[in-house]
């Protein structure tokens, strides 16, 4: 790959599906908070003007031919980061939920080598983020189960605000789950001996557009994630080192 000559070291990946309402603001905030970063939007088969908005805001845009789901979109970003030799990748949601001003906070421990993955967590400190009751219950249930399985304290396994180092990038490029990837990936990281830590962050309500969450999907989400995690435990887990060696 010759990408290294014209691309930087840090990639910010924003998976976006029909996020024209909020994406421009998110990209502007990212560019302000992390001016050294290359911003890559994965336009996941949007039917609105997501791609144009992203390009106008100065991001690189990869458009997928149809909607693949957040995990597969995110994995495309990891493939890009791997192929073009980025040392660090940060993922930020396109809906404005994550505050780009906190990118340096989640990036710092990864750059310092304290962890392979650092995830922004809502619940480590009380910062006034209010989650609707049932969803909060679901997240606590997941967090408890995952904490027991991984024997590490995890408070917000659904957080998609994460920073990864090169090792984690190469791992995720091959093994990132397709849909509802975050909780499952926490367990995968543990099995792959990638060290994940949580960093307290503030999360906002989305800027605009539609959330994809409905009661039925939330239920499906919980069942699917638990099944994926439990069956995942029965598999021989891929090791991050093998992924690096294979290249």
């Amino acid at each position: 790959m010759t990408g290294k000559t014209f691309l930087g070291r840090l990639l910010v990946v924003i998976p976006a599906y029909n996020e024209e309402a909020s994406l421009g603001r998110v990209i502007a905030n990212v560019r302000q908070s992390a001016p050294e970063a290359d911003v890559l939007v994965i336009n996941d088969g949007s039917t609105d003007r997501t791609a144009e908005v992203a390009e106008t805001a100065g991001a690189r845009v990869i458009t997928l031919p149809f909607n693949l789901g957040i995990g597969a979109a995110m994995q495309t970003g990891f493939l890009f980061a791997r192929d073009f030799g980025y040392d660090f990748a940060v993922q930020v949601d396109g809906d404005g939920q994550h505050d780009p001003r906190e990118i340096p906070d989640i990036l710092a421990p990864v750059v310092a080598g304290e962890a392979d993955v650092a995830a922004g967590a809502r619940y480590i400190e009380d910062r006034g983020y209010i989650t609707p009751g049932l969803r909060r219950f679901g997240i606590v249930l997941l967090a408890t189960a995952i904490s027991i399985i991984t024997r590490r304290r995890v408070t917000d396994p659904t957080s998609g605000f994460r920073a990864s180092n090169r090792k984690a990038i190469c791992f995720c490029a091959l093994h990132y789950p397709s849909d509802y990837p975050e909780p499952e990936s926490v367990v995968l990281f543990r099995q792959a001996r990638l060290k994940m830590i949580e960093v307290p962050v503030t999360m906002n309500p989305r800027y605009g557009g539609q959330s994809s969450i409905t009661p039925f999907r939330s239920f499906y989400y919980m069942v699917k994630v638990f099944l994926a995690i439990l069956i995942g435990l029965l598999r021989r887990a891929p090791r991050a080192q093998e992924v690096l060696d294979a290249r």
Binding site: I62, L64, P65, L68, Q75, F80
Partner: peptide, 13 residues
């Protein structure tokens, strides 16, 4: 299908 779509997106870029 997913892998083909991902590669298509990357190649188009």
């Amino acid at each position: 299908n997913r892998e083909a779509a991902q590669r298509l997106g990357l190649l188009q870029w």
